[in-house]
Computed example of a mutant assay.
Amino acid sequence: MLDWDNLRIFLVMARSKSLTDAAKKLGIDHTTVLRRMKRLEAQVESPLFERNTLGYLLTPQGQRLVEYVEKIETRVHELADDLGGVNRSLAGPVRLGATEGFGSTILAPQLASFCRLHPAITVDILTVPRFVNLPKREADLAVIIERPQTGSYVVTKLSDYRLKLYATPAYLERNVPIRQLKDLDQHAFITYLEDLVLSDELRYMNSIAPNAPRKMQSSSVIAQYMAARRGLALAILPCFLAQQSDDLVSVLDDEIDLVRSFWLVSPTELRHTARVAALWNYLLDVGQRNHAYLMGTTTQQVFEGAAA
């Protein structure tokens, strides 16, 4: 019989890829972690990790075991929630994953009202330039830009949003005039790092200006926005982000008009937990009342209680 405590330590080790980090997260000595992993490997009669310069990486057998243990972990969390009454109570923690720009500029201010409405619910916002890993319970629900094609999820469209090409007036004055799309080849761009772009939905340059030089690349849309505000180069930005600044004006407004979508997603087993359901419904309301703002046709966010 496998010891659940050893499996729990194994899962932390697999996610940390570091003996020291795993020990810190678990609150135990790193030699204990190592001893427990050797004991588990003896029980399953297979090596679970191989060590290299990147840390402790899973072997094929270790990867298979992770998949089983994550399913057990999910059931353990569900059982704890159910026995504690959390599934039926508007109380407890909810972790929300989101793309960086949307999470920082839309969700953070909008969730202030949600927290006042539900003082017993605590909200963690995970804003990172990548997709959160819902199967590993990095978040209970997430706002993403690519609808999941596989997995046991509840998914709905939150809202469409628009992107435009932006620059500062000063940049436009000191550079070659932009009158048509082919003029963009003479201008530098601020854009995403090609090898770190999280979705094909963000590969705007391929269709707008595939031959234009890249002046700066970043995995962060906030970094791109800040550099564009300083007049460094042109940047394709979400309207909801760019329109917060008077420093930026749209370029080729009639020709460059990109529309993408935000999707709200949650694992099926968590979607109807009371606290998750409350946040889910609130986010749908945020998307509905701010559709015009996300599409760039208004310049002011609408908050709960304000006239639409």
Rank of each mutant, 00 (worst) to 15 (best):
D257E: 06
G55E: 01
V94M: 01
E45P: 09
Q300E: 13
I72D: 03
L134S: 05
H118I: 06
V128H: 02
V76F: 09
E70D: 12
I145G: 00
A80I: 12
L7G: 02
V69N: 00
H30P: 07
M226F: 08
E100I: 12
S199E: 09
L19E: 04
V302I: 13
E173H: 12
D5K: 04
V221Q: 08
L26C: 06
L241E: 07
E73Q: 06
A308C: 10
D257A: 08
A209C: 12
L279V: 03
E269I: 04
P129F: 00
K24R: 15
T105S: 15
G151P: 13
F131A: 14
M205K: 13
R116E: 09
M226S: 10
K157M: 15
N52I: 13
E70K: 01
G97M: 02
K17P: 01
M1D: 05
L48F: 12
G103F: 09
T268C: 05
I222E: 00
I144W: 02
D124R: 08
G305Q: 11
N87H: 01
V66S: 10
A308S: 11
H187G: 07
Q110V: 07
D140T: 03
P238M: 07
Q149I: 03
G101C: 04
L234N: 02
F131K: 11
S266G: 09
P238F: 03
I222C: 01
Y225A: 02
T191W: 08
T32K: 13
S46W: 07
A278M: 07
D247Q: 10
D5I: 02
S159P: 08
I121L: 00
G231S: 11
A308V: 10
R95K: 10
K182L: 10
T156L: 15
T99M: 08
Y192S: 02
L252D: 05
L232H: 14
L79D: 07
S113Y: 05
P60A: 08
A274Q: 08
V155H: 09
S220M: 11
A14S: 10
D200E: 09
S218H: 07
